[in-house]
Amino acid sequence: MELSLSRLNRLANGSLGAIPAVGAVAYAVQASDDLPRFAACLALIGSAVISVRGYRLGVTCQHTTMVIRGYLRTRVIAREHVTQITSFPAVRWTTRKGRTRWTPIMALVMTARESPATRLQKDHATRKLRRWAAQ
């Protein structure tokens, strides 16, 4: 089961990296020394990574594992270790050694400025995720 949002919402998530990338390119073009250009190139690379990962935010639920793709990392959690899906939404889970962990699901976080349709879609996806975890 793939829980991702509409293309428009994914583009908005990706713009979090795309907008600074434009600024980095503009700065690199006007910079006169090598060090500022190098810094702008590093910022451009980081912004590109955030942009692509923002577009791909989501959750994939397989038979025995859950894959959560966030802005900075991808987390794979075994279904048997999931203890709760919180209202944030986030996944509470335990490691093999028994330590409790908390992993936010950034793709499903609701904000005040979202359209009602997007909020409904995120709420529906969170409910589906809770049903998957309860099985």
Rank of each mutant, 00 (worst) to 15 (best):
R73A: 13
A134T: 12
G14V: 05
L120V: 08
A12E: 03
T118M: 01
G46V: 02
R7Q: 10
R69E: 10
D34K: 07
R75M: 05
V52C: 02
S51N: 04
R99M: 11
I68G: 06
W132D: 09
Y55A: 04
R113E: 11
A31W: 00
S6V: 06
K128A: 14
P104N: 13
R99W: 11
Q30P: 00
I77A: 03
T118F: 02
Y27D: 07
A28R: 02
Q84P: 00
H124K: 10
K128H: 06
V29F: 05
A43C: 10
E80L: 04
Q62V: 01
D33G: 14
L108S: 12
G46I: 02
L44K: 11
M110H: 14
S32L: 11
S15V: 00
R96Y: 12
I68K: 07
N13D: 03
R79Y: 01
M110P: 10
A134P: 02
I85E: 00
I50F: 08
G70T: 05
A40S: 13
R53C: 03
L120H: 13
T94M: 14
A134S: 13
L11C: 09
T103F: 01
M110Y: 08
V52E: 09
P104M: 12
G46E: 07
T65F: 08
R119K: 11
R79N: 08
E114M: 15
D33H: 08
W132C: 11
D33W: 09
A107G: 12
R69G: 00
V67F: 08
L120Y: 12
A40V: 07
S32Q: 12
V49S: 08
Y27K: 04
A117L: 03
A26D: 11
I45H: 06
R69V: 03
I68F: 01
I19P: 04
S87C: 06
Q121W: 03
M106C: 13
A133R: 03
R101S: 13
P36K: 01
I50L: 15
T65C: 12
V29E: 12
Y71F: 15
Y71Q: 09
L8W: 13
K122G: 08
N13C: 09
Q84N: 13
A21V: 09
Q135F: 01
K97H: 14
R53K: 05
R79D: 00
A117E: 04
W132Y: 09
A43S: 07
A112P: 09
R37M: 05
R92K: 10
K97Y: 12
A78R: 11
A39E: 00
T103Y: 04
V91Y: 02
F38R: 07
G54Y: 09
L8S: 11
R131M: 13
R127M: 10
R75K: 13
T111Y: 15
L108Q: 02
T118I: 07
G70E: 02
R79F: 07
V49K: 06
E80G: 13
R73L: 09
G54R: 04
R113A: 14
Q121F: 03
V109F: 11
L120M: 09
I105D: 05
R92S: 08
P36C: 05
I105M: 06
E80M: 10
W102H: 14
Q121I: 02
L108K: 02
V59T: 06
Y27M: 12
V59Y: 04
Q30S: 15
C61D: 08
T74K: 11
V59K: 01
A24I: 00
